Simulated assay, not measured.
Amino acid sequence: MTALSVGFMGWGMSTGWARTTMECTTAGTSFFNGTAMITWKLFEGVLSRSFCPSFGAKDVDFQVVPRLIEIDGAVPVALHTLVLCLLALCLLFSAGSILIGIYNSVSNPYETYMGPMGIYVCSSLSTIQSVLVLIIFAVNVNVTNMAEGLVENYADGVAFETRNKSSELLLGYFLIIPYVVLSLSAILVIYFYEHAAYKQRQEQQRPTEDAPKEIMMY
């Protein structure tokens, strides 16, 4: 389950996470000029402008973090960097969960490394951090001025204003949800396995505990 969750996250990290659209107006007026659309991935993006702010249509590829640094968006840069760091930690703890499981499955059955607690800790941290990723990225796209600052950065000094911004989340964002579900499922599988093993050990001990005193002495 953990290996499958890593596959979902890897797929999500390679595709689009959000799309933001907005209208452009001449500064100080309500005159409609055109539209701008930004497709966000984790590491790169595409800005498509149509008469925003100048005439013509242009598509520009950009690197997300370097471009956000250029537009002096301290909060968007910090939030986006935090998302990347949390995703890296999710992959790290998922790898730890897989390695612990593999090691314990081939090692001496009486000597396990961290036991089920290792799976609990790694999978729990992965789940918590991936949920934080979903929250932080949605806030960064919908609440901050990250998209407006990016469009203004490509305006070449032309004065204009943006309005009617709207954002939609794409496949890459939603692929984190299966990662969360599978990480939780890994915890539940280990928990029920340990519960069943404990119950079986208790049942095996019962005949000895209930045996007559003569048999126990013998």
Rank of each mutant, 00 (worst) to 15 (best):
G10N: 11
V46K: 11
C52H: 00
S97V: 08
G101I: 05
F31V: 04
L47K: 06
S50W: 09
V75F: 13
E111L: 13
D61Q: 12
P53L: 07
G34V: 09
G16L: 06
V77P: 06
L92G: 08
W11I: 10
T29S: 05
L82E: 06
L47I: 14
V106L: 13
T35A: 01
M37L: 08
V75R: 15
F31E: 00
I71A: 02
E23L: 00
L99N: 01
K41P: 00
Y103A: 12
M13I: 08
P116T: 09
C85K: 03
P53F: 04
E70R: 12
I98T: 02
G12L: 02
E70Q: 11
L92R: 07
C24T: 03
V77Y: 12
N108R: 08
V106N: 13
D59H: 08
S107P: 04
F31D: 09
D72Q: 06
C52V: 06
Q63K: 11
R67P: 05
N108C: 02
F55C: 10
M114V: 02
D72V: 07
S30N: 12
Y110D: 06
L99F: 11
S105A: 11
R67M: 14
G118T: 01
A95E: 15
M22I: 03
T20M: 03
L87T: 09
D61L: 04
T15P: 02
F62R: 06
A36G: 04
S50G: 06
T81H: 01
T81W: 00
S123V: 00
A18P: 13
W17E: 03
Y103C: 15
G118N: 06
S94G: 11
G10A: 14
S54Y: 04
S97K: 14
Q63W: 12
N33E: 03
N104P: 07
V77C: 11
K58R: 15
S48Y: 12
T25N: 00
F62D: 10
R67S: 14
V121C: 10
L92W: 15
T112R: 12
M37D: 09
E23T: 08
L87R: 05
E23G: 02
S50T: 07
S50R: 13
T26P: 00
L42P: 06
R67Y: 02
F43L: 15
G73R: 11
P109M: 10
L99W: 07
L47D: 02
C85A: 14
S30G: 11
Y103S: 05
G118F: 03
N108F: 07
A74N: 07
Q63E: 11
L99K: 10
R49K: 05
M37E: 15
L91S: 14
L86M: 14
F43C: 04
L92C: 14
T39G: 00
R67T: 15
L47Q: 08
T112V: 11
N33L: 01
L99E: 00
L86A: 07
L92T: 12
F31A: 01
L92D: 02
C52L: 05
M114K: 14
N104G: 04
Q63N: 15
M13D: 06
G34A: 07
M117R: 15
I100V: 12
E23P: 00
